[in-house]
Design a protein around this nucleic acid. Structure first.
Lengths: 343, 343
DNA sequence: ATCGATCATTGAAGCGCTCCCAGGTGGTCT
DNA sequence: AGACCACCTGGGAGCGCTTCAATGATCGAT
């Protein structure tokens, strides 16, 4: 089966290639009647303009890129990225943009791919995830002038616009909630320490604990995996003055932590309260269901995609704050054990 | 910053565009010394050939496509796809192929995207997931002569090569294992009924139960979500002669089922044994950890990608059987309750 | 009826690459 | 030494599209 080209459409419509191009792209230059006739013929013979030829003649590639630089192991289990992608897709496919995905080992590989994509003109813009402190990708993208929207921030994104949510506020709300429940020893199991949002959360955590006079506020770094989450939890719960509440930076670690608590004979929430970040169906599946900080991740991705498309179309996209994660109390949080109040 | 073109490289190397093209593509026609010099200059000025121009001159687009046609809700939570993708990526990025991903609502949308991609010459081939019985995508892809590898099968793939694993054998092994543990009433919570692998598993389940004389072998359809898994489990466990063992078609439903059992006061594995398909870190996170049928999903994706690349390069790819899922016994399976043996 | 003005339409020039083909260079053979 | 082969090299056509400049047609106004 031969792929139809613009010339085939032109011939059947009895017009020139130029006219077909105008008709297809909604440009002035053809009468409305002709445009309709051309469109009808294009549909009839199943013509879609070659993206390569289009991109070559200066037009856009109609594709955006997304690079994931986490170990494959953690990628699979965290629902975050898949949800993000489905949100991005919803926005893109409505405008028939394609999403080009790449999974790489580390940041330097990621930068190399950006450079390659730029040279290949493969994508019109990119979405940047997992912003780090002093992120090396930002200056590179600025230098290449490759349209980019950062998912995360709002600081440390240079001149690149970003889409972000107020993690600090969400964390403050959570700590205050636990404080109101009587908890005085609260620990936090954080994600990868060089991710910017980890730093933001840690800072907010330290600040609010200080304000509330919680001296024992500890943050322990981890890597989002269940194994690490379990290990860290075991250590925290073995300490002399063990925390009465734990806040985890993702759902997987929280579930692992819940298992550890149960295995150590600590009832949740009677002896220990648990809060997970990134609410997901998983949090509702376990017993007790986890109190979690959730937000609409597909919508987050959709926002980012929309900003990027706007940027590609030449608008000057600004940073955009999305909803602050909401705390959904479930069975895993309760009043602090009374002994601990007096301790 | 201006993107370098092949002409820039040619000028700096003092050769013609043609020579640069040959040098870059490993074609004969330039001396080894010249090739090295050209390559060095290309690297130095950061040149990557425009994928559009390349694709336009008859070469490949160096991209393959993958379409996911599941509701966004179930996409996020199942680690399967993300793991599959990371395996596919590993194979692709080694050859600097790009992966174009699209999430669509249903099969007809998927077919429309295939047609569009084909017209746009956007991808050189596609990977087809979630094969159905009488799958409509197969004839379309055959008609378009778009290179495609089916993930699943081995039947129902028409002339398209497939990558598959012997689910039937895995299921037989599982049932025999449960039978050896004394279980006589085994039920299965299946995935979406029109997926081909669901049909294959159901058929195998029915057959092996018949062979072992297990009359009460029930298969109930579900949709892979935790909610549905919980609902179905609740119904199964409320029946008069409740099963002593449950086999779930994915991990999420198994975990939901575990929660339901615990909520109904049934100890696992004392009163009820549970087996999950698709082993994942999740299965190890819950209590008791789930006995599961697992396989190396990234490797599965890598195999599929490799077959597709081979097909694109003109080889005639055959179907490829990958490892049969392995049963990993963990804490969720044990001897059948003695009362049930006599029942 | 004639002349601009206006608008639909067309032809052609690229975009950056691949690949064919003619032509050049040096080395080998008789 | 002259003819003949490799083996390279550089020019150029063409891939399918966009877009600009130029053409032709239409129409109202004079």
């Amino acid at each position: 089966m031969k792929r139809p080209t613009i010339a085939d459409v032109a011939r059947r419509a009895g017009v020139s290639k130029g006219a077909v191009s105008y008709a297809l792209n909604g440009q002035p230059g053809v009468s409305e009647a002709t445009r309709q006739r051309i469109l009808a013929i294009a549909t009839e013979i199943g013509f879609s303009p070659s993206s390569a030829a289009r991109a070559l003649s200066g037009a856009m590639a109609r594709a955006i890129g997304l690079i994931l630089a986490r170990p494959a192991r953690t990628l699979g289990i965290e629902p975050f990225f898949m949800e993000l992608i489905s949100g991005v897709e919803a926005e893109l496919s409505a405008r028939s943009y394609a999403l080009t995905l790449q999974v790489v080992a580390d940041q330097s590989a990621e930068i190399a791919v950006y450079r390659r994509w730029w040279g290949e003109r493969r994508v019109d813009g990119v979405l940047v995830c997992d912003l780090r402190t002093d992120d090396l990708r930002v200056p590179v993208l600025e230098e290449l002038r490759l349209p980019a929207v950062v998912i995360g921030g709002p600081t440390g994104t240079g001149d690149l616009p970003s889409v972000w949510s107020d993690d600090a506020a969400a964390l403050v709300e959570t700590v205050e909630y636990l404080h109101a429940l009587g908890h005085r020893r609260i620990a936090r199991v954080a994600g990868l320490p060089d991710l910017l949002h980890t730093a933001i959360r840690t800072q907010a955590f330290t600040a609010v604990c200080q304000r509330l006079g919680l001296a024992e506020a500890v943050t322990v770094s981890s890597d989002y995996t269940g194994e690490e989450g379990a290990r860290v939890t075991r250590r925290l719960l073995s300490s002399r003055l063990r925390p009465t509440a734990l806040i985890y930076d993702n759902d997987v670690m929280a579930i692992a932590g819940l298992s550890v608590a149960q295995e150590m004979g600590l009832a949740v929430p009677t002896h220990l309260s648990i809060v997970a970040w990134d609410d997901s169906p998983l949090c509702r599946l376990v017993h007790p269901p986890l109190t979690a900080l959730g937000r609409d991740i597909p919508a987050y991705g959709a926002h980012a995609a929309r900003q990027l498309l706007r940027l590609i179309e030449g608008a000057t996209a600004e940073g955009l704050e999305t909803e602050t994660p909401r705390l959904t109390p479930r069975g895993s949080t309760g009043p602090a054990p009374s002994s601990s109040l007096t301790a």
